[in-house]
Each structure stands twice: as C-alpha cells, then as structure tokens.
C-alpha cells in the first residue's frame, strides 16, 4: 500500500530536537524525583521549583529556527506534524506561542497533559493511534528503541548529523 504524505505523522520531540534548553540547565538543584512526577502531570509547577526559576526557564525556552524551517518544509510537502515530548503541562503554552503559525503543528502529545511519558508503552500507544504511519524524531536512544518496538518508525536527531537529509530519506523523499 502506498502512503500519501498526509498519512504520515512526523512527531518531533521538543528538548534536544525542536527546542532548547532542558529545565535541568536552569535549575539550581535539579530534582529528578519531582521531574518524574511533573512530566506526567502528577505535580504542578509551583511545587516543582520556585517562581523566579520558573520565569527564567520561560525566558530561555525557545524553538530552534533551523528546526522550525524543517517543520515548515515537511508541512509544505503535505505531512502532518506532531510534537511528542516529555514536557510539563505548564510549559507547553510557552512553546505553542512561539510557533510562527499555530497550524504548523497538527497534534500535541505532551506527557504532562497525557499523564504518561516516553518510553512508557502507553505513550506509544497514544501516538500510534493518531495516524497510519508515525515517524518519531527524538534525540534519546531509549525512546527510539521503545518507539520501534511499538511499531512506530523512528529517526535519531543525532547531533551533527544532517537531520533534514536523514528525515527526508526516512520519509522516502
């Protein structure tokens, strides 16, 4: 069966792929136990870190212009676009507001909103139900392995590799 571009949902991770920086780079004392709860919506941000750190993270959090250009290119080719990220519910609006066009992203799979995070099989199950063909773009090898085991395709956003070329090759362009 030949897939049309619109049958493929390209799902981008945020930190390390579409956006920077990680919360850990702004946290004076990163608390991974709290992060594990925050990223699945079991903790609210005021209980995660103080308000000044929260404000600093929002001020630093940016979408990468080069990756936005890639997303726009894929959109122009007819692919559907998703964001699939382990990310706090409270931070998602900051990223959404930076999109040059809100219609650039069709679906948002934010762990803090879903209540489940990568690489939990439940996350892949939700993602897989969204399209006939899903290509995950992620920088974490553990997530790539999990996605592939769940029947998704996956492309490693390897630092220094030519991500547009690798992704377009995976998409058969």
């Amino acid at each position: 069966m030949t897939l049309a571009p619109s049958d493929t949902l390209v799902a981008f991770d945020l930190i390390g792929v579409l956006a920077e920086p990680s919360w850990r780079e702004l946290a004076p004392t990163p608390d991974l136990a709290r992060w594990r709860r925050l990223k699945v919506g079991a903790l609210e941000e005021p209980d995660f870190w103080d308000s000044s750190t929260a404000a600093a993270y929002r001020a630093c959090l940016r979408l990468r212009p080069d990756r936005l250009a890639l997303v726009a290119h894929l959109r122009a080719r007819g692919h559907r676009i998703a964001v699939a990220s382990n990310f706090a519910r409270a931070w998602a609006p900051v990223v959404r507001a930076q999109l040059p066009d809100p219609a650039l992203v069709d679906r948002w799979f934010i762990s803090g909103e879903l209540g489940v995070a990568k690489p939990d099989p439940g996350f892949w199950q939700i993602l897989r139900a969204a399209a006939a063909d899903v290509v995950l773009v992620d920088d974490q090898r553990e997530n790539l392995a999990g996605a592939r085991a769940a029947g998704l395709r996956a492309v490693w956003a390897l630092p220094g590799a030519d991500l547009p070329a690798r992704l377009l090759a995976a998409l058969g362009a």
Partner: peptide, 12 residues
C-alpha cells in the same frame, strides 16, 4: 540556547 545548540551541531 536554541541557537547555541545549532552552532555546536553545525560544527560537529
């Protein structure tokens, strides 16, 4: 940080 990441990736 967004542009810093792009710089380092370009170098590599």
């Amino acid at each position: 940080a967004d542009q810093a990441a792009a710089v380092v990736e370009s170098l590599f």
